[in-house]
Design a protein around this nucleic acid. Structure first.
Lengths: 326, 326
DNA sequence: AGGTTATGTGTAACCGGTTACACATACTAT
DNA sequence: ATAGTATGTGTAACCGGTTACACATAACCT
């Protein structure tokens, strides 16, 4: 393995000069620069990042902490983070936290020892003291940890307004809202949006809390539809719940969309594979991940970060579970 | 930060003794062990993995190379790898290769510099010279790279036999087989299994190559069903293709499963969310990932690895796209 | 002219571990 | 009694970079 000392010898300069040239720090004459460049070329020298880390106490590692990559929302996020990280020369470490504070903390401790450069965190747990006192750059997704930590989030409230209005415009007069878990920030924002939009109408509605879980949602919706056959529209706070609702409708022989219209929230790929295709409020998850990563890298590299709150617009995607507006 | 020198001083021994004790290498007296243990405790000493890496040229990083985490097959795999890695004290780096040899190579080079401990590779490209000459421990998923590299794979052929027979037993007399891309090992094994099972029957069949892509599959199946209305069974080499087939059937007004039965392959979570639920040959993806990781870690730690080929059994999961056997 | 400041470079300490080697003592075997 | 092996420990070099500091020269002031 060629070391910086080999390069220095070949170029006829000191290691300090080589290091300075390689890092663009301090003064290096044109002659020295040329000699070093040539030596690097000839020896095919590549800097050892571990040795560098040891004394700079920095690395090019980014930690991505998310509840569970298996949740259909996260792969696309991970992909975006990885793409952007790669393009800036960073490497992504995958951490499934299961929303367990102990696991999260453990990851943070472990990775700190490796001089990790920063974290992207998608945590749903509400108290996060171990983030607060971390000096490391962090960017949060979907939920605020504290004022100093930038947040990237979908415009959940607006999305919910959009979805609710879509159902109203399509003639729904009795809407079931599948509210997400109260512990989740985005679920609360979506709830607010629904309430705002529904409040402006004179339509009947019903709200049921429903986990972002397929089988549970199916059961809940089955029960609701049986108990309240007048329901002619369902707005689910997640696509997974919407899929459960769709299944429940199928089981009960309800005709979607003629008899019952459904809109989900998230925009996961599965939506289009359902029959009928799921209408949904699509989040631009890739964009969220990409932006979060860019902000993180700016923070890591001490570049100025303009804002601390980034809201990504959502989009109404109409497929088969809603009718066209007449 | 406490260093090994602080510990040595506190324990009244040399750094060499501390290091030996910590690594369980060389001789350490009971007295010294006790003193070091106490000093470590009191000082809350934690070893610096970067410093260690620098001279051992090893780390506790594992690289997971896969085509695209966004593909529904991979999140569960990644989850398994991460779980097992974590339990052994390793950390997982996520690498989306897009099946691009350049990207793969680049990752390997980059991570080698970080003294990565080993790789788990799910690569579909057939030539992989850059793996061959790598001294690093590697475990492959789903395809053999060379004889020295252990492979973990589903029992694809048997799965295909199972699926084909399931359709036959359920009365299908004209089966469409959606063959996966020829470049993929598992697709070929599934093809072999189908041919073997269908050959033993006297049933008509038709084979069409079809990418593991939803919209494309849908189009292909729509075309096929129109051209050959006699088709009463579809065996798809992937669940995504099966989902496309199911959609095509819905569009053409074919009744699944009374008129047309469908079986997929993979067992991705989406299958149960479809209506009707997708019958499929389920791979135990989690198990594949977990086993691959355990083997890799054995290799990394120079423990004996019994075999170099691990075949994980698949399972027939019957849901709504197939009838019950009368 | 003389003092500042900018430019350029090298030596050597340092980051925080591991380990080769030298040395000392205790135990075994002959 | 003596060689040979097992046990135990410390010193110092080393992994491959970065950087504080000292020093030298050139350019820019007033």
């Amino acid at each position: 393995m060629t070391t910086i000392r080999d390069v220095a010898k070949k170029a006829g300069v000191s290691v300090a000069t080589v290091s300075r040239f390689l890092n663009g720090s301090g003064y290096v004459s044109a002659d020295a620069a040329k000699a070093v460049t040539e030596a690097v070329e000839e020896l095919e020298y590549e800097l050892n990042p571990v040795a560098r880390s040891l004394n700079t106490k920095r690395s090019s590692l980014i930690g991505l902490i998310l509840p569970d990559i298996t949740n259909p929302f996260f792969p696309e996020l991970a992909r975006a983070v990885e793409d952007v990280a790669l393009s800036y020369g960073y490497t992504v470490i995958l951490c499934n936290s299961d929303e367990d504070p102990k696991k999260e903390k453990n990851y943070i401790e472990t990775l700190k020892k490796k001089y990790i450069a920063g974290f992207i965190v998608t945590s749903n747990q509400l108290d996060a003291p171990h983030y607060a006192d971390t000096k490391l750059p962090i960017v949060a997704l979907d939920r605020a940890i504290n004022e100093k930590i930038p947040v990237v989030s979908s415009n959940n409230k607006e999305g919910a307004v959009l979805g609710t209005n879509a159902l109203l415009e399509r003639g729904c007069r009795n809407i079931l809202f599948l509210r997400g878990p109260e512990a989740l920030n985005p679920a609360n924002d979506r709830y607010d949006g629904f309430m705002e939009a529904i409040g402006k109408s004179a339509v009947d509605y019903r709200i049921v809390t429903c986990p972002f879980h397929y089988a549970d949602s199916q059961k809940i919706v089955e029960r609701e539809l049986k108990a309240n056959p007048v329901i002619d529209g369902i707005f689910a706070s997640s696509d997974v719940s919407a899929a459960g609702a769709l299944k429940a409708a199928a089981i009960l022989g309800r005709n979607v969309p003629d008899d019952l219209q459904i809109i989900g929230f998230d925009g996961i790929a599965m939506g289009e594979m359902l029959s009928p295709g799921l209408s949904t409020i699509a989040q631009d998850v890739y964009k969220m991940g990409a932006i979060a990563t860019r902000i993180l890298i700016k923070r890591i590299e001490n570049k100025p970060v303009e804002e601390t709150f980034y809201e990504i617009p959502v989009k109404l995607v109409l497929r088969g579970t809603t009718r066209s507006v007449e």
